[in-house]
Amino acid sequence: MPEASYSADEMMTIAAARMIRNGASLFVGIGLPSAAANLARLTHAPETVLIYESGTIGTRPSVLPLSIGDGELAETADAVVSVPEMFAYWLQGGRIDLGFLGAAQIDRFANINTTVIGEYRKPSTRLPGAGGAPEIATCCKEVLITLRHSKRAFVNKLDFLTSSGHMEGGDSRERMQLPGKGPTAVITDLGVLTPDPVTRELTLTSVHPGVTAEKVVENTGWPLKVAPVVETLAPPSENELRVLRELNERTRRAHTEQV
């Protein structure tokens, strides 16, 4: 097999972008989710409505924002609303199709931790915390999660449950009356995991080109279920790669202007 002309991170962003339906309203977290959402908007999903928790609705930034409230997000938005309005009317009001989150840790039912590594009161690593994620995870109609694959991130037990996925699996999410249907895919730098329709346990359903199912299992901190048929995703198209690289280059230039 020839050496790939793209990185695993690029493949992850492109695979995540492909999952975004044109026209969907999308609540976007900063970092990997923001890159994927903007790539989708600049390729196959131009009508995607990007919403950032700073209050910007229908924003079209030319570079990836460093923060959730960069000026360009407000300048290019259809509307800018206050933060209480964003979380009350738009998110809790059930207006948003798709929430897009990152995570430090994830478990087999796609519950996520962005709060602490270690004990809460004496953490070994204090992470930023919840932000908008708990209500994004429960109130959006559907949730995508993207993070890099490793045993440190894909853990048997979360140190802290920050945002709800499928809780203890099965129908536990419905029994708790969480409004949205929860995570429908986890996109990593190795492949894509989707919840089993009955048990809701994350199952490896596709891998990126050149990645084996064994490698994904090795990098997961629990005995990962593997679908009977694991699809290999199409490599990045020339257009996807070009648009992503141009976006990253514009972003790099914009964020390194002299202090």
Binding site: F87, A88, Q92, N111, T115, Y120, R121, A130, P134, E135, T138, C139, F160, L161, T162, S163, S164, M167, R173, M176, Q177, L178, P179
Partner: peptide, 13 residues
């Protein structure tokens, strides 16, 4: 009042 904090560990602490 909000439709929030469902399932998260935050209320424990």
């Amino acid at each position: 009042v909000l439709r929030g904090y469902l399932g998260t560990d935050l209320p424990k602490y």
